[in-house]
Nucleic acid binder design. Sequence first.
RNA 1: GCCCAGGUGGCGAAACUGGUAAACGCUGCGGACUUAAAAUCCGCUGGUAGCAAUACCUUGUGGGUUCGAGUCCCACCCUGGGCACCA
Length: 816
Amino acid sequence: MESEYKPREIEPVVQERWTREQSFAAVEDDSREKFYCLSMFPYPSGKLHMGHVRNYTIGDVISRYQRMCGRNVLQPMGWDAFGLPAENAAIANGVPPAEWTRANIDTMRGQLQRLGFAYDWNRELATCDPDYYRWEQWLFIRLLKKGLVYRAKSVVNWDPVDQTVLANEQVVEGRGWRSGAVVEQREIPQWFLRITDYADELLADLDRLDGWPDAVRTMQANWIGRSEGVEIDFAIRGQEAPVTVFTTRPDTLMGATYMALAADHPLVIAREAADPELAAFCRECRSGGTAAADLETRDKRGFRLDLEAVHPLSGEALPVYVANFVLMGYGTGAIMSVPAHDQRDWDFARAYGLPIKPVIATAEGVAPDVSEEAFTEHGSLVDSGEFTGLGFDEAFAAIADRLAADGRGRRRVQYRLRDWGISRQRYWGCPIPVIHCEACGAVPVPEADLPVRLPEDVTPEGAGSPLPGRADFVEVACPDCGQPARRETDTFDTFVESSWYFARYTGPDNDTAMLDQRANYWLPVDQYIGGVEHAILHLLYARFFQKLLRDEGLSAPDEPFARLLTQGMVLKDGAKMSKSKGNTVDPQAMIDHYGADTVRLFMMFAAPPEQSLEWSDAGVEGAFRFLKRLWRLVADHAATGPAPLADPDALDGGQMTMRRKLHETIAKVGDDIGRRYTFNTAIAAVMELCNALARFDDDSPGGRAVRQEALDAVVRMLTPIVPHVAEVLWQGLGHSDDLLDAEWPIHDPAALARDEVELVVQINGKVRGRIRVAADLDDDAIEAAAREEPNVARHLADQAVRKRIVVPGKLLNLVV
RNA sequence: GCCCAGGUGGCGAAACUGGUAAACGCUGCGGACUUAAAAUCCGCUGGUAGCAAUACCUUGUGGGUUCGAGUCCCACCCUGGGCACCA
């Protein structure tokens, strides 16, 4: 083999072989155990960034490792191709989103191929393809007919100057990003999916997702936010209908001192017209964006209504406020306020001079001091009439029962999770397959007419979606009555496409069905890899869709992703790499300079996959150096001709030590890659082994046999990470079989045996010496050996040992 | 504001189940090779004191549990991610 490592020469040759031999085309085979490894598909934004390289390298390492373990691996790739950036690019450059997107896909596909990822390109898909999105439209219609889809009004960010709906991202400090106008909240009719019908199952199944990080499961559980509480009706003086509130703390009901309504509560809207001051306050509540982070960090403000609510138990009159922190979208849009036992209510009561009445006692059984803050813990009731003295659970039950008996309340399970609004007033998305007819209402497009194709010869210019202006798209006949009707011009949230693509990869070429038998073979995904930023929304929606597919009889599993790895961000100078910060490193330049293997190696070595990764040019250089050293190690060994086979029973001491190091490394690397996914420590272990091999200058037949065994293992252990150079080294070591299917090395337990171990000796927990002793020595003998160590003896002096702790094979601690 | 992570040398990190803190790599310094440079190879590299043996200090801050804490508990500080129309 060549004496010098030349990645630019070897990588194209190796890749050419993979392409020629279709090395990564996955074929269903019931006789083999399958492994479906999926990385989150990219949005085709232009070119690959380092975050992509990291994500896809992790997925590729796992895929190639699983293949060497004998699994039938599927690793597909595609494009999350609809979305806002394509429209922005169109506005900026005058290029149709379809054209821009497809050009980006071509660029990025080439980059992925240059990185040598083991994808089955035959299964590539793009969500902007009618062949893909027609099945999304098809499923939507099924769900519509099943009652899982409904239409309702909800709020959007409205730019009053540009006369268009804005994404949260397009609202900057409450103003439209282009016009600078103060954004208003506006209600418009939209389509919703009943994800809340699945809330309980989505929550319960989290317990079974033991291949998912706990942090993600916790975040999802909190997002779903199941809470048990009571709905309470408060009569309003002079009004026919009561106002209903929801509370998880009915035990504090006797401490309620006022009521607060959302600005969009029907009772408020009804009074707005006659009260200009109220109207002004409500307008203020509705100004600015709809994002929760904005709404919840505003100053808490209120407006007193000339209404009185009647306390359902005491009959007391309570003042009623409109408050900017009560949101119509959560619960009932009205709350009872108990300032003594809720901090937000306390803050508001303080600001508006409202009474604060404690009704829950502290652990000492006395009324809490609420002069500085609310007392929010559970406790027994005080000053609560017939309920005084009850604990939280009894009080909850007694008050709920009492309200129910009076017809003024009922127990209810409430979710923080809201139904999923899937309508977007945008052009570059999947058309919602509905036709609006004056006579027949919203009529689903007949299956035979699918797909509803998005016109692609369109260049948005800024103010709103061009679709409503396209007569050839909008003007259609009603499928039911045949009269002139209007096609729906909203498109789906792009999260809809990314909620089922994992399933479509199993049969992307099927033009007669959404999914087929192949889905049964491959699903669920065995390993999913993607950024933490998707921990809640995308992953929750995908879980929801898998349950929808299951209930449609299209795919059996309850959950889409058996195992999940959430990859950390790629940083430069401590900040996320981004164009706006100007701290990006172009992967392409790195690949051109060092080759794909070096970039892959650095990515996997610099940090464990779940942590953020600090980019370092010097670190890349170091990775390149390691590959050069490895190359030389193999080349020097190969130059001495074929090596004999190692005979473990005929090795001398040095050879046995070298071989033990090898098998310790094999054991560690297998565990690190296969179980822990700590690729960084796996690489560190291989580096250590290579350092030991470089120092191992034994050219006897036994020594050469051990070195051959070690290098064979090193190359195989590095194959998932640096597959190109590994393939050439494998040949250099005299192998002619396909490394892609070479067996993952297994350690020989016999090689690990030691007859001597080093123990740390501590006195009172401080390290005072080290001793080498026979591995099977008993505790008394260990202590005796330790006492002979001069430094240990000095610290021990003549003090009596009170306690002796022995950790086998590791440590002896003497307590004096 | 709410939910979830993270914080260890000059830097990226390691320490997996409470048991040797800093493996591996980078940087820096010293040396070898070279006419020279690059490349490569060898050595040193947490702090303080000491010729050394060694001692003391050190895992964001302050407390606690333990023979023993980076790891467990309590309180706090800082950084990052998400918050439903960015993907």
